[in-house]
């Protein structure tokens, strides 16, 4: 009796496992019943897989190349940006020199007036030269900007032409630059102001932090 129970239980277990595995397999086959998979032979599938793999590798190497190119371009772009920045600064400097842009900053103002002697154009020219030597970035006479092509002419005894515009005294010369240098260049002993004094012409110096030349 005991032997029979063991026998039936073990055979039942065997039947259970067998049917379980069988039904699992049925289900698996049913779910993976893809037409393409079924109709394709294994060798074909393998070839397909290999071709896809090679395609994938190709695409990957291509992607690497492209990435490298992108980084190259990016470094180039950044270096070009440096170059443009330099060019821009140079342009700003040039524009300042040419008087195309407004300049603002600290500087000095000198007023020349007829004293016992009249102010002549050489006074103006030498003053402008002195100021330039002292490092003035921008100079103006009676708000007329002095640039590289400025003319200072004296058609009559009373009227100056600056930039072909008439101006008359008193003459106010404004210079933007390092205030210390400009001032010392003008007020030095036997310098410009001293000479004007000996020539008995009136001249006055004023300093300011804010001059504007346009």
């Amino acid at each position: 009796m005991k032997e029979k129970i063991i026998l039936s239980i073990s055979i039942g277990c065997a039947a259970l496992i067998l049917t379980m595995v069988m039904f699992t397999q049925f289900k698996t086959i049913e779910y993976t019943d893809i037409v393409a998979l079924e109709t394709m032979r294994e060798a074909e599938l393998r070839a397909e897989l290999a071709s896809w793999k090679s395609k994938y590798e190709e695409a990957e190497t291509k992607m690497g190349d492209t990435k490298q190119k992108i980084t190259e371009y990016q470094t180039q772009i950044s270096s070009e940006q440096n170059a443009t920045e330099l060019l821009r600064q140079e342009l700003i400097e040039s524009q300042k020199t040419l008087g195309y842009t407004d300049v603002q900053g600290e500087g000095i103002m000198i007023t020349l007036e007829n004293g016992e002697e009249k102010v002549d154009r050489f006074d103006l020219i030498s003053l402008i030269n002195e100021l330039r030597l002292a490092g003035a970035e921008a100079i103006s006479v009676n708000d007329e900007r002095v640039v590289f092509k400025t003319d200072i002419a004296l058609p009559t005894s009373e009227i100056f032409l600056i930039n072909s515009k008439r101006i008359s005294g008193p003459y106010t010369i404004k210079a933007i630059g390092e205030m210390k240098y400009l001032e010392s260049a003008i007020t030095i002993k036997n310098g410009y102001l001293d000479q004007r004094k000996t020539e008995r012409k009136k001249s006055q110096l004023r300093n300011s932090n804010q001059y504007h030349h346009s």
Binding site: I11, G12, C13, A14, A15, L16, I17, L18, T19, M20, V21, M22, F23, T24, F26, K27
Partner: peptide, 11 residues
């Protein structure tokens, strides 16, 4: 019984 239980588990 084993077959029935096995079929149920397998499904």
């Amino acid at each position: 019984i084993g077959c029935i239980i096995g079929a149920l588990i397998g499904m």
